[in-house]
Design a binder for these strands. Structure first.
Lengths: 229, 229
DNA sequence: CCAAAAGTGTTGCTACTACACCCATGC
DNA sequence: GCATGGGTGTAGTAGCAACACTTTTGG
């Protein structure tokens, strides 16, 4: 061991904001913490072992905690306050994970819930989020209310010029579904015509030719994301 | 010790992209690595001790390596590949630090240089940077070429809707100086009239009333950043 | 035929680009 | 007065918000 190893290293964890939109509601997957521990609901996470990369750790947590793989995720930020966890020093690298609704429904592991993600306040530099389970607010453990505030901030900021909305959708989708994702993330309604045009003008999506089935009224055209330019 | 401590934790470091603009050139402070070590130039950094926060570690590195304090810094991202450092596992939390040129000139500690920061390629998702010392390219250690690519990407992305340009300027500055910062970061010339207007319309700055002194020609008005809205 | 949602056309405004021009100062 | 950079006015244009409208399906 080198001289550096004389010091104890902080623990490093990845925490995941596993996001989805169901019925126009932005949701995040949370786990309830054991009662004798730090109280409240928290994002799922796992420690980073010395021989494993951050991304591999994300994939491990995704498969262990929710049994899914192959979904898109991206790094948000790293939280390293000394007292974020009262038990010991943990530095958390937080990731956003985008999950189409169909993949999560019914699949949530024991002890996990999909909570409505709301915002109590947000400005340009930060925010604070609240989580609702069956309509009632629950308390968030650690600094996860702050982190989830930053999550919403990032979602709103990148929504227009990135593909995150499509990461929340199945492979084939209607324009209306894209709009619902945007409305859920922004928390306000949008007008259909300008939204359609902006989306189509970006040239990111193309019609599949097929139409939605099972609809009660006029069937909408289905689109897919073009593969990387 | 808890059971978790049975595992060795990875080391955590902060690495700093200390940035400035001198004579229209975007520069980054680098340290030359000892020859018997990992070769090349690297960003200064330091390990995160278990009882010290990330931000405090940034401040310690700033004062140790360049003897400055009180400048603006912000987190970029965290790099956690297993083999980024061939000697041992290090997870690096990278920060941008913005330094007005006057603070750095002449003050660089022994073994540090201000290198021109250029870009060999950049797209929406990533980039690769090169560093020039006295006009000749030097090699960057570890994954620092990738990281510095991400640095430029972030600078360009946030330039318009943030105050990072002002963090590179002294308290009082001319509009021309702001434009030079923007041109250095974007790597292309800008037209003066629209630039002036956009800047003034944002309402972030106000005239001090004073004029630049020592200029050869018509003196420019001095501005200052309004304090937080 | 009617309700409901899909999809289109048109107008007006805003904001940015680009260029031409005038102003103030040192030599 | 002239060279040089500071500062302003103005026209053309692209893009977006808002609303009215037409189209297509199931009952």
């Amino acid at each position: 061991m080198t001289e550096r190893k004389a010091y104890a290293n902080p623990s490093v964890a990845v925490d995941l904001a596993i996001l989805t939109v169901i019925e126009g509601q932005l949701k995040v997957l949370l786990v309830e913490r054991p009662a004798d521990d730090v109280a409240g609901y928290a994002m799922p996470g796992g420690f980073v072992r010395i021989e494993v990369s951050l991304e591999q750790t994300v994939e491990r947590v995704l498969s262990e905690k929710v049994g899914i793989s192959g979904i898109h995720f991206e790094q948000l930020a790293t939280y390293g306050g000394v007292d974020r966890d009262p038990r010991h020093r943990v530095i958390s690298v937080v990731y956003l994970a985008f999950c189409p609704a169909a993949l999560l429904e019914g699949r949530a592991a024991a002890g996990t819930v999909l909570a409505d993600l709301r915002v109590s306040w947000l400005n340009e530099v930060g925010g604070q989020a609240t989580a609702l389970i069956n309509g009632t607010e629950v308390s968030l453990a650690f600094d996860h209310a702050d982190i989830l505030g930053d999550v919403v901030l990032r979602l709103r900021g990148k929504l227009d010029y990135s593909r995150i909305a499509f990461a929340l959708l199945p492979q084939h989708f209607t324009l209306r579904a894209v709009q619902e994702i945007h409305e859920a993330i922004l928390g306000r309604p949008l007008l259909k015509p300008p939204f359609r045009r902006k989306l189509l003008d970006r040239g990111l999506i193309e019609p599949t030719g097929a139409l939605e089935t099972g609809g009660a009224f006029r069937p909408a055209a289905l689109f897919r994301l073009k593969d990387e330019d």
